[in-house]
Amino acid sequence: MSVSSLALAQTLLNGALLGCLFGSIALGLSVKWGHLGVADFFHLSLTLLGAYLTYSLVTELLWDPFLTLAVTVPAFFVVGVGVQYLFHLIDAQPFTTLLITFALFIVTESVVSMIWSPDLLNLRPLLADGFTTSIRLPDPLPRLAVQPIDLVALVCAALMVGLATYALRSTRAGRAVQAMRQDAAIAETLGVRVLPLTLAVSGLAAATAAVAGMVVSLRMPLTPTLPLQWIGVVVVATMLGGLGRPLGALVAAVVLMMIQNAWSLWFPPQWAPAVTFGVLFLFLALQPLTRLARERITSGRTA
């Protein structure tokens, strides 16, 4: 393999692994947006909070980063349930939920700045070498390097997305969620307990932010404005992957980050985010055409 092709392969691999992290964040957003109709910007803030809480528990109490999940996952589940219950109490319409979660998104950034300071906080220097030292892929694979932390992101994304996809497709609760997504009033008349189901889905989606936040704290320096850097990729991946489709969101995030990273090899990196939105623009522009083609094919079958 030539040097340039090796560099390209390494860049694509790095992009794919970073995409796994963004896919983990997009998972919760995709589930809440697709199945509950809540475009939840607060989910990004929860991920940030998860990262900062992990940082504090590791640095202050010297906990193992993975052990922090025993605290953050249940806590975020409760927060997710609480926010969804609030929406239920005020009978919030989709636009209202958008405004509320966006307000929480802004407030959380300020609260994090006040509690942890706006300065960069970095967990990496405190981590064992085994976490941070790059390892080479074994022969006969190409001579590419990966960081163990990125493998953690890969495993977490695969586990969470795999479980969510299985649950939605193959379990009784998943069928209830799908029925509720299509028409909550009809689902209720068919015996689906809609309120407890929405609370559980919201809680579980929020709990995934705790896991993604833990990975973030291991992967990158923390600053309260991180969600603003993520929002483009996460929202676009959620939409490209299909709302409510965790696997789609993960694949979209991986592809987007591979494209962004490859772009940065040849073009100014500051233009890389434009690629993300360019892909979204193309997707939205072509969507009516693909829908038309699908309808023609479908009507051809039924004719």
């Binding site: 009784r172 069928r175 209830a176 015996g191």
Partner: peptide
């Protein structure tokens, strides 16, 4: 769906 979640809920 009605049979799964209705009065005498059953498996899929």
């Amino acid at each position: 769906t009605a049979s799964m979640f209705g009065r005498h809920a059953t498996g899929r």
